[in-house]
Design a binder for these strands. Structure first.
Lengths: 158, 158
DNA sequence: CACAAATGGTTTCAGTTGATACCAATATCG
DNA sequence: CGATATTGGTATCAACTGAAACCATTTGTG
């Protein structure tokens, strides 16, 4: 035999996608049903709770969402009175986003739930394994965002 | 401090989603540009190469795609002459799908590329780590598809 | 055997998504 | 300074997705 036959079940991109989708669906439907938040909206709230007053561009960078998604999430949250979008002092185009009191209150409600969900979903791993997993994912992410072109050249060579 | 403050960057569902999306985008755009295949289409080809003559329902089960996606992928591939959909002898509703010669040829072309891509993307992990990662993902997947209700009850209690 | 329920597949429809084009403001450079 | 390129953000449009309705067939079950 020249090449081992490629079992789809062993194919890492496939495995990663399936697992991630399962987790995402779980989490997304919980946010939606408990708090009426979409995932992008929740990410925005979470990141603003960590660092208030960011521009939409900065938020996009941190959360790896494209600016369209950020824009939509921001407007939706503004509409619900959860974030305020103030004019930036130094740049008339930019809006500095920050959580309103209601937004902070919501975050205080969501955050513990999110943690509980994380704990439940990953309860099948012991803490050391969870750390391991995070580390592996981080390495992959880093290698995909920096090593970029080299990687693909390698793959395209055949 | 009562609760540690939930850093989004440390939140596993988020990490998983980001990494998986990066990998998926990479892989999807390669399939598309090299072979004109969407991810569902590629999955279908891959699974038929492993086990020919499956029904669409069976394919959906194996690949965790819903039946609409399978249907669309199947018709598209049939249109390109890559799979044949024969009438099932025992059930007039069902179609048994199998790769045509062209389909097998395409698979023979795509499979090594897919493996090369996998190798390139995960070149930042040594083999033992890759195995570890697969194992962790498999555990999570299993716990989400079997432990189901218990998990959510746990998360909802708080 | 008739009739209800379940199953394989397709169609339809509404919601989500991201690429692209776009507008306004700012930065850069001759 | 004025032209040009960039950047923050929005709007538009086409593609993708999945839920639900649907049709045809098959499988109970009385």
């Amino acid at each position: 035999m020249t090449t081992p036959p490629l079992r789809l079940d062993d194919f890492l991109p496939y495995r990663l996608s399936v697992t991630s989708n399962l987790v995402s669906d779980r989490v997304a439907s919980a946010y939606r049903s408990l708090f009426g938040l979409s995932v992008p909206e929740w990410r925005l709230v979470a990141v603003l709770a960590e660092a208030d007053g960011l521009s939409q561009a900065a938020i996009g960078e941190r959360t790896r969402m494209d600016k369209v998604s950020v824009s939509r999430a921001a407007r939706a949250l503004e509409g619900r009175g959860l974030v305020a979008r103030l004019a930036d002092a130094h740049d008339a185009r930019a809006r500095a986003l920050s959580l309103t009191a209601a937004g902070r209150a919501l975050h205080a409600l969501v955050a513990p739930r999110a943690k509980a969900m994380e704990a439940a979903i990953f309860s099948c791993l012991d803490p050391a394994e969870a750390v391991q997993l995070k580390a592996l994912l981080a390495r992959i992410e880093a290698s995909l965002t920096t090593g970029d072109r080299d990687l693909m050249r390698q793959a395209d060579k055949k």
